[in-house]
Amino acid sequence: MNVRRSLVVPAAIMLGAVGYAQERALGQEPGEPFETPPIPPAGAARAQPIAAIAGKDVIVCVPNVQLPHNSKHVPGTINVVATVACTKKVKSIAVRTGLYRNRKRVKMSGTRYFPGSRFGANNAAVRCRPGSYLGAVSWTVRFPPGYVPSVLTKLAWGDTRKLSC
């Protein structure tokens, strides 16, 4: 069965073809967030929502890759925060965040798990050097029993921002 075709959700929250192709190209399993690419590809997928359905119930999850910024807690470092917010509590959310400077990945976070939550977040940081910074997030949502699909992994990109130190 083509699971994605069975979802009755607005087109705007269906899986993005570009992101899905990227994940396939990276040869990743769908159950865990993966390392974001070493170099941002052309046509990188922006943050797109995903959805899972169980009967009439739909859970929508939305990623948000924030603009990189100078850390408030540790001056002299550039930090990027990525979040995932779902409309209902899910089985788990796992998040990895990548940080890029001048179109080259300079930091890849580990995986942070949020069991039984509606929210997940992770961050990546480097010592500040002037340049153009960009964040990316690889994220996996495991939905509650009965929802289709049961698990989804996605990749999304934020906007580029020039930062000085």
Binding site: N64, Q66, P68, H69, N79, K89, F114, F119, R161
Partner: peptide, 28 residues
Amino acid sequence: PDPPTSDGPSDRRLQHLVVVMGSFTDAR
């Protein structure tokens, strides 16, 4: 609507608050 419970070794309510407030950066 379904707030994290406070059972267990760590307070899920405080974790939830830290996750949400930590997302409210100057960039956001």
